[in-house]
Design a protein around this nucleic acid. Structure first.
Length: 677
DNA sequence: CGACGGGACGC
DNA sequence: CGACGGGACGC
């Protein structure tokens, strides 16, 4: 498939290509009451800006922009297609202002966001109009997203295998929630540049993906793990009078219109699950802060979110950082279906319970929990897959499971086409998981859809073991380091930061995610958090100030992983508090108090090492894995040559290997580009 | 190590 | 009220 236009990628986790979701054609009225927008937390009531807005209140509409429309197309060619997903209020074909020539795009107006959503999901990149060269692009018109309060969280993904398709990428990312869109960057020849963008509609999904993949997951055929971070704001297409909301930078969209309730708490449970992690590849040191020891933000190291120079347009985005939603109860529990998988050895045959055989969203959920159906969306998935179950349970198990853990929303075309999960290519099994369960190879933390249960089982158990081992050794290391630290600085004060944050994260984690929303406001890092912990120890503030390579200040939240240009109130308040407390010895360790006291510096360094160790256990723990070639059926299948998937190392690239050539080309192109006048 | 898709409102 | 052009990212 790959060839053409970014290739028929299906944006959404559930592959419905030919079978449209539920009733393909809805009378517009029913649409309202029926389907809700795929938004994970709608159940909780009003907090999500995504929801509620258009719900039923009339007067609104949702306009879509449609690209790749053949210039020859007429409304009659287009309308029916969109009518399949809702009542089309209007079709506006765009013509050149001057010449009157069709521009190859149009606008479609629906009455509701639900219809629009459905159309996007069903059509984007999936339908080619007669006479068209590639599939149409269907997305919200400029400004619509903002207007409708539909947020999206876009991740930049680097170090992709250049052979990977949109779909491959989607599979990797689907584990954390429904992937709204994947865009791979390609050169003129349509070759992947090895990076791209992945969108979620939910922040927690994005965070989960970052947590689980960034610096950790290495695609097959790659020697580097993925880079996964929030995308920089899109480079503004110059000129185009910018009326609309720019891309949400950093932590994601500002938040639609105003967020009603204070979404107290920032990123819930992440952070600790794996222990703090240090992205292996902390941002290329370019400025003093990053080279020096002065950047203690352990987990972040600025890695995901540092603004890039050249993207100064960002401040256009007002307040991102609001947490539109909260607490998605990530991987709280292992689903019963998953449990069997933990069994290390007894690898069940690939039949029987195949947890990943969703047929539709709702069925998926029902199948798992036997419970009522929830909206289309899959909340999160999780870590149960990406992490050793034990960890998940240990750290998050206490969370009230507010909704059925739906794992494997990796449900994709593959799963659909192959609901039984039985007909997996035999080569998959031996391939990714060697026989012994005890190996040090970490199996892929996230095997995409095609995994058979047995594979999952093995993966999980292996991961578990490995991680446990590394966890233990890390703990030892930690103790040692701790001792060293204490010797170095008897003041003991130095540990407070770290411990504090640990404590607070625990608190965070322990917090019932789904409770009624207000009680969660305990953290100081939430935008509107109460901030006051009466007298005692200074409340912790997760925000710290940093300076971008461009010399601009920005602020980073260790816990939520957000960054923003504006100074967060919490930090301001926090600093005030500090001052009032008149604790001379204590200074904000994380701010730019260069040069940091030696002790701090050392501590940071040690911690960093430790973190790195935890997160990046010795080489053998790295598992190069990749969502292998697709199982039977589908377009892809016709290309038997790809049976082994791309990028397999063994296959030595021939001298005239296109990929190689391509690389050379790229370099040249890059240079040319960079040096262009 | 890679950063945003062709086109963008004709009302 | 006020409104051009043409080209546009500065890494």
């Amino acid at each position: 498939m790959g060839g053409a236009t970014g290739g028929g990628f299906r944006p959404v986790g559930g592959g419905f290509e030919r079978n449209y979701p539920s009733p393909p054609v809805h009378p517009p009225q029913q649409v309202h009451s029926g389907q809700k927008r795929a938004f994970p937390f709608s159940g909780r009531g009003g907090n999500s800006p995504n929801r509620d807005r258009l719900g039923s209140s009339g007067g609104n509409f949702a306009k879509l922009f449609v690209g790749s429309v053949p210039r020859t197309a007429t409304e009659d060619d287009i309308r029916p297609l969109f009518e399949e997903h809702g009542h089309v209020i209007e079709v506006a074909l765009i013509k050149d202002k001057k010449t009157g020539q069709p521009q190859g795009c149009c606008f479609i107006k629906y009455a509701t966001l639900e219809e629009a959503d459905r159309a996007i999901r069903a059509l984007h990149n999936q339908h080619t109009l007669p006479g068209g060269v590639g599939p149409i692009q269907v997305r919200y018109a400029d400004g619509e997203r903002e207007r409708l309060g539909a947020v999206e969280y876009k991740l930049f993904v680097g170090s992709l295998n250049k052979q990977a398709t949109e779909r491959d990428v989607q599979e990797i990312f689907s584990q954390f929630g429904r992937v709204e869109d994947v865009y791979l960057m390609r050169d003129e020849l349509k070759q992947s540049r090895g990076c791209g963008f992945v969108k979620y509609c939910d922040r927690e999904m994005a965070l989960a993906a970052i947590d689980a993949l960034n610096g950790i997951y290495t695609m097959r055929g790659c020697d580097q793990p993925l880079t996964v971070r929030f995308a920089d704001p899109k480079r503004p297409r110059s000129g185009v009078a910018d009326s609309r909301g720019g891309a949400p930078a950093f932590g994601g969209p500002g938040f639609g219109p105003r967020i009603q309730a204070p979404i107290p708490r920032p990123a819930p449970n992440f952070g600790d699950t794996m222990g703090d992690k240090v992205p292996p590849n902390p941002w290329h040191p370019m400025s003093p802060q990053n080279t020096g020891p002065s950047n203690p933000s352990i987990r972040s190291m600025g890695s995901h979110l540092l603004p890039r120079s050249g993207d100064l347009a960002m401040p256009l985005n007002p307040g991102f950082n609001q947490h539109s939603s909260q607490v998605p109860t990530v991987g709280q529990q292992i689903s019963p279906l998953q449990k069997p998988l933990q069994s290390p050895q007894g690898l069940p045959p690939p039949f029987q319970l195949h947890p990943l055989a969703p047929v539709s969203y709702s069925q998926t959920q029902a199948a798992h929990s036997g419970q009522l159906q929830v909206p289309l969306s899959n909340p999160l998935t999780p870590f149960s897959q990406a992490l050793p179950p034990q960890h998940s349970v240990g750290l998050r198990g206490q969370l009230p499971a507010s909704r059925p853990p739906v794992q494997q929303n990796t449900s994709s075309a593959a799963a659909l086409q192959n609901p039984s999960g039985v007909n997996l290519p035999p080569n998959l099994l031996p391939n990714s998981v060697p026989t012994t369960a005890n190996q040090q190879h970490l199996p892929a933390p996230m095997q995409p859809v095609q995994q058979s249960p047995s594979q999952l089982a093995q993966m999980l158990s292996q991961q578990t073991q490995t991680l446990q081992a590394s966890f233990q050794s890390s703990q030892q290391a930690f103790s040692q380091l701790q001792q060293q630290l204490q010797q170095m600085q008897p003041s003991n004060q130095s540990m407070t930061l770290h411990q504090n944050s640990q404590a607070s994260r625990q608190q965070t984690v322990g917090n019932p995610p789904t409770t009624t929303g207000t009680d969660v406001a305990s953290s100081t890092s939430g935008p509107t958090a109460p901030v006051i912990a009466p007298t005692v120890a200074p409340v912790e503030c997760h925000w710290t100030e940093h300076t971008s390579p461009d010399g601009f200040k920005y602020y980073h939240n260790i816990v939520t992983q957000e960054s923003k240009w504006e100074k967060p109130e919490e930090l301001t308040l926090f600093e005030q508090q500090k001052r009032q407390q008149q604790k001379p010895p204590m200074q904000l360790p994380q701010t730019q108090s260069y040069p940091p006291q030696a002790s701090q510096a050392q501590q940071v360094q040690l911690q960093t090492q430790l973190q790195a160790q935890i997160r990046h256990p010795p080489p053998q723990l790295q598992q190069p894995f990749f969502p292998s070639s697709y199982p039977a059926s589908g377009i892809r299948n016709q290309q038997n040559t790809q049976e082994l998937g791309y990028g397999q190392q063994p296959v030595a690239p021939s001298p005239n290997d296109p990929a190689r050539f391509q690389q050379g080309m790229q370099t040249v192109q890059d240079l040319a580009w960079k040096n262009k006048p």
